[in-house]
Computed example of a mutant assay.
Amino acid sequence: MSSLGGYYIVRSEDFVYNPRISTSAPVGPINRNKLGRIGVMSPLYTVFRPHDIDTTYLEYFFKSKYWHSFMNFNGDSGARSDRFSIKDSVFFEMPIPIPHIDEQKKIGAFLDKLDSLITLHQRM
């Protein structure tokens, strides 16, 4: 990832952590750029590109609440109550369970199919 005057260039499949907290994202959300195009992100966000891990698997990991305890233990809501504060160096030490790549792909594909099925039933 490169920088453009302090801003981050977000490429396809990069992840972006938004430190703004909400009821549905108590430590802030992490989302994957699946738009198929490049974007620009403020330095208030953390942008990262994973290596040697299936991005769909990682996306579902961040949709879970599994990583919230690490964030709560290592960061805080800071001076502003609407933003979560954690140092990038600490954030990147987050332990993530990483099974073999084949298993990651199977888990990601299974959860994708499950999401599609749920969406289909909600439309009915």
Rank of each mutant, 00 (worst) to 15 (best):
I38Q: 14
K87Q: 03
Y57H: 01
H68C: 03
P97C: 13
S85T: 09
Y45P: 01
S85C: 06
F73S: 12
R83H: 13
W67S: 02
E13Y: 10
R37K: 14
S22T: 08
G5R: 05
S12C: 12
P50K: 05
P19V: 04
D76W: 05
S24A: 14
G39T: 08
D88C: 00
P19H: 06
S69A: 11
Y45M: 09
S12E: 15
P97N: 10
V40Y: 08
D82K: 13
F48V: 01
Y45N: 08
N18A: 12
T56S: 10
I30Q: 05
R37H: 15
N33H: 09
R37T: 11
D54N: 07
S22Q: 12
I38A: 09
K65Y: 09
S64R: 02
S42W: 03
E59A: 04
S12M: 09
E59H: 07
D88Y: 02
N33C: 09
D82C: 13
I53H: 01
R49G: 04
V40E: 10
V47S: 06
I53E: 04
N18L: 10
S89C: 00
F48M: 06
F92M: 09
G28W: 06
L35G: 14
P97E: 14
T56D: 14
W67P: 00
F70L: 04
L44E: 12
N18F: 12
F70Q: 01
Y66I: 10
F62P: 00
V16G: 09
R37G: 12
M94D: 05
G5I: 01
Y66G: 04
I96K: 07
F73L: 14
Y8K: 11
R37Y: 15
L58C: 01
F15L: 03
S12D: 15
N74L: 04
P97R: 13
F91G: 03
G5Y: 05
R80F: 15
D82E: 15
I9A: 11
L58D: 01
Y45K: 05
V90H: 00
H68L: 07
A25N: 15
L58H: 00
P50F: 06
F92C: 03
F73M: 14
I9D: 13
I53M: 10
N18Q: 13
